[in-house]
Amino acid sequence: MSTPPTLILHHYPTSPFAEKVRLMLGHKNLSWKSVIIPMVSPKPDVVALTGGYRKTPLLQIGADIYCDTALIADVLEHIQPLPTLYPEPSKGMARTLAQWADSTLFWTSMGFNMQPKGVAQIFERAPPEAAKIFAEDRKAMSAGMSRQRPQDAAAAYKSYLRRLSDMLDDRPFMLGDVPCITDFAMYHPLWFTRVRTSVLADILNATPAVLDWIDRMAAMGHGTMEKFTAQDAIAVAAASTPAGLAGDIFQDEHGIALGSQVMISAENFGLEPTHGELVAATRMHYTLRRTDERAGLVHVHFPRIGYSLKPAHAV
């Protein structure tokens, strides 16, 4: 029996998307190493591994760096197939609803959570300038995005919560008797409301079925965690070789050949590009090869959905 790989999660405790991954690790009863990263830039240790991408979280396995929780979910599924995140026969529906939750539901909840009362609670124990620094950092990451006002977000959030409650009328999880990727994607925005901006959590009280579901999800825990330093994680990358690329590694949609110098960036939030050599463009994801003076040779992986691929010289 092969030894399971060492999973290194780069995250911070209050990140909702990191909570999504932590809960998936718990669901699959996996052991992992925890590297705490800053909430805001600069993030030199993160950039040493990614080459530019700085959203939270990242999953590191040796010299392979996986960006975006949608791709991280697929990686965890490959490592530990059971219990599955994608139970049949609703796998396609589960992925589609998860994408909605990670975008529409998430940004609606954040529009509601980040009203003045919520922000005051988040930063109540932080230095006075912390909220301003955070706001400036997220403003830079969301340049060009339209953001909902708290009043509009509250109205939409209430409607979405009622819809989630309807989904839970006759089953314990969103699509059936067992949790799937939809549950994890829908959980983390609500977790932030309930845990991080609890002064606003009364909005959840009108949907008791949703509160009960949140409790069932939270009971999964976070698996077995061991603290790890960023320096040790970078040393692991430097001492490792990226995993081999298997199967059909090239599905061309851009007219960009393997071996080309390219850049990949998110389409709407956190637009900092990662530059490198394109070594795979599969049906589901991209892989860039890059070298860092501290981390050495690494492969950085992105999902296709939600990311754009361009030649490195493109403006």
Rank of each mutant, 00 (worst) to 15 (best):
E19Y: 02
P44N: 12
L49E: 07
P16H: 12
K28E: 09
G62C: 07
L97Q: 08
L76V: 11
S34M: 07
P13T: 04
F17Y: 15
T69S: 12
H11T: 14
I8T: 15
I36C: 11
L85N: 06
E77F: 12
D64T: 13
T14H: 12
F17N: 03
L82T: 15
L9P: 10
N29L: 06
K55F: 06
K33P: 13
L85I: 12
Y86D: 01
W100V: 14
P42S: 13
I61C: 03
R95M: 06
S31P: 13
W100I: 14
K55C: 10
E88G: 10
F17R: 06
Y12T: 04
S90F: 12
E88H: 03
K20H: 04
A70T: 15
P87N: 06
H27C: 03
Y86G: 00
K55D: 05
G62S: 09
K20N: 10
A63T: 12
S15R: 03
D45P: 00
R22V: 03
D74N: 05
A48W: 00
W100P: 10
P13W: 00
G26A: 07
L82G: 08
T69R: 01
A48Q: 09
R54F: 03
L76K: 04
T84S: 15
G51P: 11
I36W: 02
L82S: 15
L59H: 06
T50Y: 02
K55H: 07
W100N: 13
H10S: 02
G92F: 08
N29R: 15
L58G: 01
P42W: 13
H10L: 11
S31H: 12
P81C: 01
L25P: 10
P83R: 04
V47S: 00
I72N: 02
E88W: 00
R95P: 01
Q80P: 01
G51L: 09
E19Q: 15
G51N: 05
I37Q: 14
H27W: 13
L23F: 02
V47R: 06
L97K: 11
I36G: 03
F17L: 05
M93D: 02
Y86I: 00
T50G: 01
P89F: 05
M93G: 08
D68Y: 05
V40S: 12
G52D: 04
N29H: 14
Q60P: 11
L25K: 11
A63D: 09
L85A: 04
N29E: 14
T56H: 04
L82K: 14
Q60H: 12
L85W: 06
P16E: 11
R54P: 03
E88M: 09
T56V: 15
L25V: 14
A63K: 08
T84N: 05
H11K: 15
L85Y: 08
E19I: 02
L76F: 10
V75N: 00
L23C: 06
Y66M: 02
V35L: 05
Y12D: 01
I79V: 15
P57H: 11
T6M: 13
S34H: 09
L9A: 09
L23D: 00
A73K: 04
R22E: 04
A98F: 08
L7K: 07
L30C: 13
K43M: 13
A63F: 07
L59N: 06
H78Y: 04
